[in-house]
Amino acid sequence: MNESSALIARLKRIATTGMPTQGDGRADDAWLTQGMAKAQLHEVFATVDDAASGAGFAVASVLAARAAPVMWLRTEASERQGGRLHATGLVEMGLDVTSLVLGLVEDEADLLRAAADAARCHGLGTLLIESWGRAPRIDLTATRRLMLAAEASGVTILSLRIGAEPVPSAAASRWQVAACRSRPLEADAPGKPAFDIELLRRRGGQAGLRWRVEWDRDAYFFDQIAFETVIIEDPGGDTAALSGAGVSVAADRAAADNAAASVRRTG
């Protein structure tokens, strides 16, 4: 009896997701302490304005998963638009930069070719692929290849998509990252890195979950924060003037409940 109900549940899942083997059995918030599921492809989306948050979140999840060494692939366009990687800053996020190899490629085609090679390298812990803009080559086929390579080699692949809209892909999960106001330190200094995370999609799991987290570099985990101390802004003139790109205002985000599966996100 039990067996058949389990089977029905499984079939139902297959019928709804089309993916027979997924659902890794991890708790929804396992990533807070363990990072992303290993040997899978995950996508991290961030707007151009939140590029650093996207990258920071990716680095932090590598660290939470303890999945070094890291190969970070980026294009020359990323370097021009987003600035170059700053090792001291990465060290201060907690990353041991001696375990980081940076690959700078000319264009997207090279990016995918290099990624295909790196994804097969058993010695890597994480492969981080950073792309800016729409990057139409990173499509369903490309992501499926990466996913298969990741499953075969055990390398966790994070595809950091900055300034891109989600398109169909074979990734195991898809995240949207935005900067979030930190808890200020004494003397009004900006606090630890804080992120507004939304799980847009997860194979065989619940989607639409949101968290507001702070990266604890010393303990290597994401600390969920409740924003009791958020300063309420006046929603007047200046913030409205800012939001040319339809950016949500921190104040109403703070007002929203953490766990609520809100559809609001930045960008």
């Binding site: 650093a52 090792a87 996020m93 930190s182």
Partner: peptide, 16 residues
């Protein structure tokens, strides 16, 4: 590399 000080937020950016 100089290890960051415990409890401090990152004092250097990740993109420069």
């Amino acid at each position: 590399w100089t290890a960051p000080e415990t409890g401090e937020p990152p004092l250097r950016p990740i993109y420069l």
